[in-house]
Write a protein that binds this DNA or RNA. Structure first.
Lengths: 415, 415
DNA sequence: TCCTATTTTTTCGAGCCTCGAAAAAATACT
DNA sequence: AGTATTTTTTCGAGGCTCGAAAAAATAGGA
């Protein structure tokens, strides 16, 4: 079960702590690190001196901000961009993108590609992913030695070990062990992550003030996804990648959902559901495979114009999301929410009914104080989350390795 | 934020680890502890020698089990019952109980008392609690010096710091800071816990095999409560004591709930709801204050006898619980469930509809494999949970104190 | 009964790690 | 140029865990 702390672990953990303090703060001085970690100046001095010698950190003179103070000026520590690199691969509907990110978190190269994911064969899909990664790795500008990790995000359900996609709405294929495939192909540790979880990770890095310990990222897209952070940690359910907010039951026996069941939140709030309601089709009508963003924008525009079926469709979406959030809040208490994805641009149409619904639930007691952010563009968020997740792995598993891990088994993912 | 590991913490943590290994295993030998903690024999030897000298642990010769082995026989280590004592106070509807528990977890004294909690004044309620604790502390058989912690459990909502009851169905009073009151009165650190959470804690100790890392304890009583353990830790929401499963929305705008809202799970599955449906009253009828266990037994008996409104009432309860669990499972993935409380004795009437409902949800995909345990008697569970929680505090905060804590502020609760 | 094999527990020195205090370094102010 | 101030490094002390070896305690066999 719980394991004691060995003496070697001590240095390891404190190294990891220093690295993560630098990653969070950007250019902290040794004194600042000592303050945030609670360790003594001597310890920080020793550890950072090691890390600099190993090329993981670098001193960056220009602290510039407070150089008006008396005394010896602080020396900023920063991540050495060349210490390592990671690849962030995002596979979404009809779209594949890869980015090379340096150790400091800057994108140094990227490539994007349109594919027809819904009709591609299994081998073609895998082949495209492998090929795009290979092209980046073969880039002569890139020091391949330094690529330490590949993180791949996909919409859908992943297994609990972050190895495989189990099911995804973007392809009829199931059970593709992308992480294992890439790892075997390139000999670089890889992980497979759920896109909404990566959105949540990214939000935490982007705005740690607002998205600190507990918050919710909801993807409003063809389907409804969620990334949930509780107590500062990504919550991924106990078996799968969890957090299937879109498939909480809104109305038992209600509208037909893409998953084949009835009454899920998604069956009212997913793009296909809004589209179906806007056209006044039956709730039992088979969900369509895809609705273009342009078409959704047209629906939203018409909903804003006249009080017709389009507006009612958005109202129903808001109601479903509101009751779903209300039930969620009953379990975890209210937390900040980020609405991400194309339909977040129509949040003005969704919000009134959402707030009205949430106010009728136990979790929504203080529904006025619950705040919603919107971010229509999910792709950069997902990529950013992938990158940070991969970099965290490098921070902890490679640059602050335990004794056993130093022997080095590829593919242990604990990040 | 995250704090580095100071050198002093090392011993502290490993001490705590040894104590907790002994509490879990009962009578482990030093060798067994070394194996489970991963620490070296020398370290375990040093730490346990300290703990024995301090009177926290004791050697208990009779290992008896494997004395047929060659070699030096193992010496079992056990908790010294006299090392400390804790008080577990359980306040429930019309009932107040207190138990004194020794450090090894055995009940050494107890007292129970009937009160009319629904009509008592605030002062009377507080007075009774203080008085019953005082009587136990004044027991001449008890070494008062050794009482290290009081844990008080109550049905209802507690604040996130485990200090106060915010709201409870057993009394019209609100916002009673029981923990602070007892702490001030007796100078002993106290905590205030939610009853369902304590049930979950107790289940984990009772059957660690079944209730390990993720499981759900549901209290089927006048209201519906839940204790949720995720990743081996009690999940208590972000603000309040969380986990208001009973107030997830089952049917938007549906039956009137005791909380004043509509369509909560409890409004279909709480005793008052079953009673209301069994009498074929309107779903809008005001919930009654209390239904006796005897009356519920009569309802259940009649439901088993004939297919009338009683059976239908239990069916509706099962349906509500099933859809609620389904939504919960969509978020956290399926986990073992324990049904606790008087109505768990009628689980045979609830289960069919529950399973049917859960099978219609995303979380219930493998609904056949979800297993339910029943435990009609919640009181012993709650008390046991209180005791273990208080003892864990003693283990960690008193017998493995950090340097700062050794200066000793009363009332920091981290257990 | 005594000796040997076996297993558990303790002892002891080595090696790290963190800490506090003091020294050194680097700047602003006068 | 000297002083005050702040940051960073240095250095010895004290603790902790570890591995190896010794000590302790038993069962089995001659």
């Amino acid at each position: 079960m719980s394991v004691g702390i060995r003496h070697d672990d001590l240095r390891r953990r404190n190294r990891a702590m220093v690295i993560s303090a630098v990653r969070r703060a950007g250019q902290p001085s040794r004194t600042e690190i000592a303050a945030t970690t609670g360790l003594s100046h001597s310890t920080i001095s020793a550890i950072s001196s090691d890390l600099i010698q190993e090329g993981i950190l670098a001193e960056s003179k220009a602290s510039e901000t407070v150089s008006m103070k008396r005394g010896r000026p602080q020396v900023g520590l920063s991540l050495n961009p060349q210490a390592a690199a990671v690849l962030a691969v995002v596979l979404s509907l009809n779209f594949l993108s890869v980015a090379v990110i340096d150790y400091a978190g800057q994108v140094v190269a990227e490539e994007q590609r349109r594919l027809d994911t819904l009709t591609m064969s299994r081998d073609a899909l895998i082949g495209e992913c492998v090929a795009i990664v290979r092209r980046r790795l073969e880039d002569p500008d890139l020091d391949v030695q330094s690529v330490a990790r590949i993180a791949l995000a996909i919409q859908g359900i992943t297994d609990s070990h972050a190895r495989a996609m189990l099911w995804s709405p973007i392809t009829p294929q199931t059970n593709i062990a992308f992480a294992d495939i890439l790892e075997r192909e390139f000999g670089i540790p890889a992980i497979m992550e759920n896109d909404c979880n990566m959105m949540a990770v990214a939000l935490r890095w982007r705005d740690p003030h607002r998205y600190r310990d507990d918050f919710i990222a909801i993807l409003l897209s063809h389907g409804i996804g969620m990334g949930l952070v509780l107590k500062g940690e990504l919550f991924t359910g106990t078996h799968s990648s969890g957090g299937e907010f879109g498939h909480m039951i809104h109305r038992p026996g209600g509208a037909l959902c893409r998953c084949g069941r009835r009454g899920c939140v998604e069956a009212y709030a997913g793009n296909y559901a809004i589209w179906r309601n806007a056209r006044q089709m039956s709730e039992n009508a088979e969900p369509v495979a895809d609705v273009s963003d342009a078409e959704m924008r047209t629906l939203a525009a018409r909903a804003r114009e006249t009080d017709g079926p389009e507006r009612e469709a958005y109202r129903k979406a808001g109601e479903a999301l509101g009751f779903g959030l209300g039930s969620l809040f009953a379990l975890i208490d209210p937390a900040p929410v980020a609405m991400v994805g194309a339909s977040a641009a129509a949040f003005d149409l969704i919000e009134p009914a959402l707030r009205e619904a949430i106010a009728q639930t136990a979790g929504g007691q203080h529904s006025g104080s619950i705040s919603f952010d919107t971010e229509p563009n999910e792709l950069p968020l997902i990529r950013e989350g992938c990158a940070m997740r991969a970099l965290s792995f490098v921070d902890q598993e490679i640059f602050a390795p335990s004794i056993q891990a130093r022997a080095g088994s590829v593919g242990k993912n604990v990040a």
